[in-house]
Amino acid sequence: MAIRRRPRSTRLLVVTLVSISLAVITLDYRQRDSGPLAIAGDAAKTFMAPLQEAVTTVTQPIGAFFSGLAHLPSLANDNERLREENAALLTQVQVDAAQQVELQELVDLLDLRDALDPQAVAAVVTANGVSNFEYTVTIDKGSADGIELDQPVAAGSPDAQMLVGRVVAVTAVSAEVLLIIDRDLAVAATIGDTREAGLLEGQGASDLRMSFFDSGTLVEGGEPVFTQGYELDGQSGVYPPGMLIGQVSRLIPSENETQQYVEVRPAVDFETLRFVLVLQTPGSA
């Protein structure tokens, strides 16, 4: 008797869990950014943020070490010298090099803040999205540091002011930045020399795709693409104008005369992004 009842109770459990999942999907779909599920999501992110920061601090040198090993073939000269050193010294060299890069990135970021927006908040990338289908990073600054929804996020140096994305979720101690490569993000942009305007949309792992407002645009490969400032009903756009987004990587032959597209390779290397600047004055830099 007991043996017959056990599978039924398992099936009942599965049906219950599936029903709860469907209810959660429906509830979240209707309520979106408000309601108990959104609050629970914020609480989960607040709980995870310090843990992610701690894990990143611990695992960063390990990742840098293995990343360094992966790039050793391209460093032939260094290889000769390093081969004579022992494994401990090799590790030390990798860590030192990573720290130098970090230092330069921080100096560039400070200069960028002075040039772009003195009120901007510098932040460290502590984690990345957990899904293969969502392109976000988590930063270590939140509403307690003045971070708000929809603030633009930049990286680079005063000579190369690069757009990273936009803040889409904020907790007290962390914030989530939707990267420009995500499919949910679109940016008004211009092609460097031609100043032709268009809409740039994320394509996930592939290069970004830019469609032009004017179908007769002549574009060449390698041209830089910048954010475009605009004003609508007295409100300026989210992103400051003139920020580098990337370079034209491919011209897509148009299927009809009214549509024209190019592909744009992002200037920011999101794989190695460590420090960012959250701008406090959107659209006005």
Binding site: S21, L22, A23, V24, I25, T26, L27, D28, Y29, L37, A40, G41, A43, A44, K45, M48, G129, V130, S131, F133, E134, T136, V168, A169, E176, L178
Partner: peptide, 9 residues
Amino acid sequence: DFLLNQPKG
């Protein structure tokens, strides 16, 4: 799901 920006569940 709670760590994603997509519909939860």
